[in-house]
């Protein structure tokens, strides 16, 4: 469960004002809003990359406000993927495990698992600069899932893709969410994306979340 309680965040020109919402555990939440409405700021606050002035971030019933990003157990895919330019795909997938001091054998197994899950087994030794948009997003997704987080925050993961890769990735996101049971908060300005993916829909307007609709059966 991803929960925000009256989050107020100042970020440059605008600020988020008393945001309150919740995405139930194991659901695919899509947060919609126009460009510049503060979606990215909200995601960063939930991930712990920005501190709120007021309010709490609650993940699975735990108040994590003020925790370090790495302690929150959130897989984060920022806009444009932000791959590490000098690392191979394999290194991307193993980075978080290396930080956690997993053994070589454990890492090998997990990387193989992840590569199969997000479909990057054939490009494990390539570096980001040769990858297509779709491949890059798969790597970013695999990297975010690598340490088995219970929560996934996606910032416009499909916006830079052509139609074909977008369709593939939508299917992948849906499948990954079902297989891992991860709770997702997916930010987008695209209504179609929201309608296909969302179990749970949120809308942000002028710094406030004004509407939530559940599509869950």
């Amino acid at each position: 469960m991803i929960e925000a309680r009256s989050l107020t965040v100042a970020a440059g020109a605008f600020h988020l004002d008393g945001i309150t919402f919740a995405v139930p555990a194991g659901q695919y939440g899509v947060l919609m809003g126009a460009t510049g409405s503060g979606k990215t700021t909200l995601l960063e606050t939930i991930c712990g990359l920005k501190n709120p002035l007021i309010g709490q971030v609650i993940l699975h019933g735990l108040d994590v406000t003020g925790w370090k990003p790495g302690d929150r157990g959130i897989g984060y895919v920022p806009q444009d993927g932000a791959l590490f330019r000098r690392m191979t795909v394999r290194q991307h997938l193993s980075f978080a495990l290396w930080v956690r001091r997993w053994s070589g054998e454990q890492i090998r197994q997990r990387v193989a698992e992840l590569a199969a899950l997000v479909g990057v087994a054939h490009i494990l030794d390539r570096r980001p600069h040769g990858l297509s948009g779709g491949e890059s997003q798969r790597v970013a997704l695999g990297r975010a899932l690598s340490f088995g987080p219970e929560i996934l925050c996606l910032d416009e993961p499909l916006s830079a893709l052509d139609d074909d890769s977008r369709r593939d990735l939508v299917a992948l996101l849906k499948r990954v969410q079902r297989e891992t049971g991860v709770t997702v908060l997916h930010v987008t300005h695209n209504r179609v994306e929201a309608e296909i993916l969302a179990d749970y829909r949120l809308r942000i307007v002028e710094g406030r979340v004004i509407q939530t609709e559940s599509f869950a059966a």
Binding site: E44, L49, G70, Y76, P78, L83, F84, R100, S146, F147
Partner: peptide, 15 residues
């Protein structure tokens, strides 16, 4: 250099 790479590294558990 965009700070995003660092931010991702932080969410992955880096100090």
């Amino acid at each position: 250099m965009s700070p995003r790479q660092e931010q991702v590294a932080l969410t992955l558990g880096c100090s």
